[in-house]
């Protein structure tokens, strides 16, 4: 046993260097003023107080709002797709899931650039509209474009999670529902959907969290003026050079994410109380 335990040590060192120390640095920056050196360290809360300016709060709310819409759209689009895939033949399932995951292999940046050529004023959609003799629609640099980009990027995660939950559902439960007089709709409402909720919850985690903090998609599809919390942090570090303020925003974001994760987890456990998850605990 002890020899195996020793194998963990290099990993802990790795964790320390690449995860713990950078995190501590962020905390350090967030609580200090600009222009520190090794000898003089000035602690302050100003970085946090500054954030509670209405401008920044608006950015935060907008980010949460867009992430929420993205998540909801992903559930609405993803659930039926996952449901249909899970009900096809085993071979078809594998193939379809492969197709769903292929876009995940391609860099977000590339995929987002591709959307620009679709959505821009003289892009594919608008040239098609022009051919039909219709007026062009401005789509680039709108909430619509940003949300679309996010949904496109994060939808596979949602499908994957819901599909996994549906695929591991015991078929005999559906037979049992059928046997007890439930029709297809009732079986879905009372058995399939409640038992797939854990998949939806993990899908929400996988979609909502990156949507809140992404900065590539809003930057490309929303334009330079489009400000979400991710862009705000990026700006502080790269353009403005306010590392202290940027760190403080990052910490605030981390707290929000932590809290939202806590609630989704809690909700998940309440729902599947004593269900599959707890069974493992009691076994």
């Amino acid at each position: 046993m002890s020899t195996f335990r020793n194998l963990v040590k290099p990993y802990m060192l790795w964790m320390g260097i690449f995860i713990i120390i950078p995190m501590l640095l962020i905390v350090f920056y967030a609580f200090t003023t600009k222009g520190n050196d090794v000898i003089t360290v000035k602690f302050t809360m100003d970085n946090f107080l500054k954030f509670f300016d209405s401008v920044y709060i608006k950015v935060l709310l907008k980010s949460l709002n867009i992430a929420l819409i993205t998540t909801i759209v992903c559930i609405i689009l993803g659930y039926p797709v996952a449901y249909i895939i899970a009900n096809t033949k085993q071979k078809t399932q594998t193939l379809l899931m492969l197709l769903i995951t292929i876009p995940m292999w391609i860099n977000t940046l590339v995929k987002t650039y591709a959307w620009i050529s679709v959505l821009s004023d003289n892009g594919i959609v608008n040239s098609f509209l022009a051919k039909l003799g219709l007026a062009p629609i401005t789509m680039m640099y709108t909430d619509f474009a940003v949300t679309l980009g996010m949904v496109y990027n994060f939808l596979p995660f949602m499908i994957l999670e819901i599909y996994t939950a549906l695929a591991k559902l015991d078929r005999s439960l559906i037979d049992a529902g059928n046997d007890l007089g439930a029709n297809k709709l009732q079986i879905f409402q009372k058995i399939v959907f409640p038992l797939s909720l854990s998949g939806v919850i993990s899908g929400i985690t996988l979609v909502f969290l990156p949507s809140v903090s992404t900065f590539v998609i809003p930057k490309l599809l929303g334009g330079g003026q489009y400000m979400l919390i991710g862009n705000l942090i990026e700006n502080q570090f790269i353009t403005v050079g306010e590392w202290n303020f940027g760190s403080a925003i990052s910490l605030i974001m981390a707290c929000i994410i932590l809290i939202s994760m806590y609630f989704t987890r809690k909700f998940d456990q309440d729902k599947s109380e004593n269900g599959n998850k707890k069974e493992v605990k009691h076994a």
Binding site: D170, L173, D175, A176, N178, D179, L180, L195, K271, G275
Partner: peptide, 22 residues
């Protein structure tokens, strides 16, 4: 006649109880 309309009930091999219900 589909299963849900038959006056027959089944005890399944692995019981197939609904895990999310008491």
């Amino acid at each position: 006649v589909p299963a849900y309309k038959r006056e027959i009930n089944t005890v399944f091999q692995k019981y197939a109880l609904f895990p999310h219900m008491n």
